[in-house]
Design a protein around this nucleic acid. Structure first.
Length: 852
DNA sequence: AGGAAGATGTTTTTT
DNA sequence: ACATCTTCCT
């Protein structure tokens, strides 16, 4: 987060560098720095810089503890470097050391470095580690995501780009709303258009840097379907522009367009960033690729001259021809971990890097420092089934480690119970909750897990999922802020128009819109002028009042206006939000509602208010726009709090780039992994395999693979088949606690069909393990004890008191004896030794138990 | 205008 | 199963 507001301002206290503007080049040197940077110095580093170094980082050489390949990746100097980094091969280490080396050896100023990461969290981590290596904070580095970097550039160059610098950023839900409205107005739904479909298509096009016009030029105008799509696209573009809004894809595309249209503007950034490093390069799409391509373009002599005349310092960077050579580019990636093709990531960007940047150096990192050999062997075996890849084998010096544990549950709930039990077992062995993670393919799978975890008193955290900022009440509150920051944003205005209810219905809304249209004024202005619309006095009053409220809030933020009455200076984001929430009665309405859910909603809004206060504290110089930007660009993985002592639950996609001691990979079933939807996509199954591979390689010491025989979806319970990928793991690596073929306890449930492999995978000698070859037995009946019963009941045992020695009966586990009771109030937990089911922990308040 | 009951679709992944 | 959207009723 701090990366979005990294201290790049002249107000920064450190004397090292003085900046000269948004694209500031270190034009003036601090007194303590004698040597100016001169772009990269080939060979300079190894000669006098790094190895002997230690001058800058508390004496620790940057190369200590690196293997030869890693060293090479840190030390190499040249225009282009590709680091092919297998999972867990220490690429973050290499990147941070490389950056620290560039800065520490004075080859580059921090401000000449642009490092792109996949998430804000990764950016923050990288910044921290670089500063740790350097032994000091280094302002001016840009370490951020593609999107954050583009926002920063676009806000700085807004005028050039034809935008307001306070443009709003629409998330996918916002753009879908706009599209939905357009579809409705054009009655395009009769042609089979859906908001989601159109939104996806537009997103894909923008990722390819197409816009309406370029698309329309090549469109087949005899196809009514196509004509309609073009019309929707056109409307969408028009509305976003009118609202001074950009969607996620625009952020990149507009930046690229800006660079291409204004070479001199681009040159400011080309000149500034002499070293560009991109992480997760395999997941870049065409727009991102182009962004990097533009930034690393050499600056033509005539543009250099232009800059020079404009007073920029460029002479020192010129080569013999008068041009400024392109920045040096380092990309890191692993094509085996490419999992975002579905949203336009183009694996060719990394595969063809050498062709793209002739003379590029390639370094391969294959030694893994994360996982045990058993885990790596499984990963290697799986991924080797993807043809069309460079063979690459991860290896480790760590040793074999524990076997992979396999488990087949009767249902998703059974699977979840197994995981909860195993987590407790691990806990008993001294593994902390925070070192455990549970991965799944789809968010829907969290339900069963959460239910069981709550019951079993396993502390957990869902990373991502339904995000805080996507909640309706938060979007409402945010819409107030957006309306203040960007009066042109009609979407925000319409959203708050009748939230909370103030008697302004859809009819009134339409009247306002057409009034604005007819008079060529903004929706906001139409609200101010509502008096001349001849509506009822009550409605008119409500509209005008809202408009006035927003205007007033805007004044609170405007430094020019602070002259008169209000003694205080410019108000902070939290003050403005507090004002808006109070005056609009949004918060009060939620609090006094009789809908029980509104209580939580009110709490959420208050949480947002608290967050703005934190934000103001951490970023004293940042304004409303900065806050809105930050909120727009937070990702699922960003809010992961490492310090919390909880088990982490997340999707396989979110898991990329993370690692845990113990990993549970759940739902390894056909239809789920690989997912049903991927079957029709061209590279689908291969991408799903990479996803599986990514999941496996997150584990350091222990890996659990679990699946269920039946899984509930769409309210129906369906039979699930083991994933084809399971067979790709050599049997001797897995120890099946309950194998896919032997889940027949309890009076002999039928053995079930696998994808018919006679040698079975892994079933270790237990009875019935090899009975499933060939035949296709009927689907097993869901075990009644589990099937969908957990959801049915919302239990509340009230103030049931238990103490050590009590005997209880549990719906699923039978009878048992309480050994211990811990915790307080509603969180009291009973530690129970069941007669047949073993030891469990139960949350007393809600567990399906009775005292005997 | 606002609320309740009924209809509908949604679940692949995300900056 | 659940949430959201639509339709109908007050």
């Amino acid at each position: 987060m701090s990366t979005l507001f990294d201290p790049d301002e002249p107000t920064d206290s450190r004397p090292m560098i003085v900046h000269d503007g948004p694209a500031g080049f270190p034009s003036t040197l601090g007194a303590n720095n004698a040597a100016p940077p001169a772009g990269f110095v080939p060979g300079g580093a190894s000669a006098g810089g790094l190895p002997g170094g230690g001058a800058w980082a508390g004496g620790d050489s940057l190369l200590d503890g690196l293997n030869p390949e890693q060293r090479e990746a840190v030390e190499y100097r040249g225009p282009a470097l590709l680091i092919v980094a297998g999972a867990g091969s220490g690429k973050t280490r290499v990147l941070t050391h490389r950056i620290a080396g560039l800065i520490g050896s004075r080859e580059a100023w921090p401000s000449q470095i642009l490092a792109i990461t996949f998430t804000n969290k990764a950016a923050a981590e990288m910044r921290e580690r670089v500063e740790q290596l350097l032994g000091q904070a280094s302002s001016g580095m840009w370490i951020s995501t593609f999107h954050s970097a583009c926002v920063r550039i676009l806000r700085a160059e807004a005028e050039r780009a034809g935008l307001s610098s306070s443009f709003t950023i629409y998330d996918s839900a916002d753009s879908r709303n706009v599209i939905k409205r357009i579809i409705k107005e054009l009655s395009a739904d009769t042609l089979g258009f859906t908001a989601a479909g159109v939104s996806n298509k537009i997103s894909k096009l923008k990722n390819e840097l197409a816009d309406v016009d370029s698309y329309a030029r090549n469109a087949n105008l005899n196809d009514p379907q196509e004509v309609m799509f073009v019309e929707i696209f056109r409307q969408y573009t028009k509305r976003l522009r009118a609202a001074q809004a950009l969607d996620f894809d625009d952020l990149l595309a507009e930046t690229v367009f800006l660079f291409r249209a204004f070479p001199a503007t681009a040159a400011l950034y080309q000149r500034r960033f002499r070293h560009i490093l991109v992480d997760e390069y395999q997941d870049t799409n065409h727009a991102q690729y182009s962004f990097i391509k533009e930034l690393t373009r050499p600056i033509e002599p005539h543009v250099v001259a232009e800059l020079d005349t404009a007073g920029h310092h460029v002479r020192s960077l010129q080569d013999a021809t008068g041009a400024i050579p392109g920045a040096s580019l380092t990309v890191v990636g692993d094509s085996d971990q490419s999992i975002y093709a579905f949203r336009g990531a183009d694996i060719r960007n990394i595969v063809e890097f050498e062709r793209d940047y002739p003379g590029a150096k390639v370094v391969l990192l294959e030694q893994n420092y994360r996982s045990t050999q058993n885990i790596l062997s499984a990963a290697n075996a799986v991924i080797s089934n993807n043809f069309d890849r460079k063979d690459k084998k991860l290896w480790t010096a760590i040793g074999d480690g524990a076997k992979i544990i396999g488990y087949t549950g009767y249902s998703g709930h059974d699977e979840a119970q197994f995981i909860a039990d195993e987590i407790e077992k691990l806990r008993g062995e001294g593994v902390a909750y925070r070192d455990i993670a549970v991965f799944y393919r789809t968010n829907a799978q969290t339900r069963a897990l959460e239910e069981i975890f709550v019951r079993s008193a396993v502390p957990y955290r869902v990373v991502g999922g339904t995000k805080f900022y996507e909640r309706a009440e938060i979007k409402d509150a945010m819409a107030y802020l957006i309306a203040v920051a960007n009066p042109a944003d009609e979407l925000a205005l319409r959203r708050i128009l009748n939230t909370p209810k103030r008697g302004i219905g859809p009819a009134t809304e339409t009247q306002l819109a057409s009034f604005a249209e007819a008079n060529g004024i903004s929706f906001r202005q139409a609200m101010r002028d509502a008096g001349s619309l001849g509506m009822g006095p009550k409605v008119t009053g409500a509209i005008v009042k809202l408009a006035r409220l927003l205007d007033e809030a805007a004044l609170m933020l405007d430094p020019a206006q602070r002259s008169s009455d209000s003694a205080a200076g410019v108000s902070s984001v939290s003050e403005v939000l507090g004002f808006l929430l109070t005056e609009s009665t949004l918060l009060e309405t939620l609090r006094s509602s009789r809908d029980p859910q509104d209580e939580t909603r009110a709490e959420n809004v208050e949480e947002l208010l608290a967050q703005t206060k934190d934000f103001v504290k951490e970023n004293p110089d940042a304004g409303l726009i900065d806050f809105l930007t930050q909120v727009s660009l937070v990702a699922a993985a960003d809010d992961l709090d490492d310090s919390s002592g909880t088990v982490s639950l997340m999707t396989l996609h979110t898991a990329k780039g993370l690692e845990y001691d113990s990993v549970f990979l759940t739902g390894i079933e056909e239809g789920l992994l690989p997912h049903q939807m991927s079957a029709s996509e061209p590279g689908g199954p291969a991408e799903e395999r990479r996803l599986f591979y990514v999941g496996i390689t997150r584990a350091r010491k222990r890996l659990y693979l679990s699946l269920a025989m039946t899984r509930a979806q769409f309210g129906e319970t369906n039979v699930a088949m083991p994933s084809r990928y399971l067979q790709e793991i050599p049997g001797d690596l897995i120890e099946w606690r309950q194998s896919p073929g032997m889940a027949n306890s309890r009076g002999g449930t039928q053995p079930r069909a696998l994808n018919a492999r006679r040698d079975g995978y892994g079933s270790r000698g237990s009875s019935g393990s090899d009975r499933f070859g060939g035949e296709l037995p009927p689907a097993p009946k869901p075990k009644t004890e589990w099937a969908n019963k957990v959801t049915a009941q919302v239990r509340d045992n009230g103030d049931l008191t238990l103490e050590a020695g009590d005997r209880i009966r549990h719906v699923d586990f039978g009878e048992g004896r309480v050994n211990q009771v811990t915790g307080e109030g509603t969180k009291r937990v009973a530690h129970v030794q069941f007669d047949t089911a073993g030891a469990k922990k139960l949350l007393i308040k809600i567990a399906p138990i009775e005292k005997l």
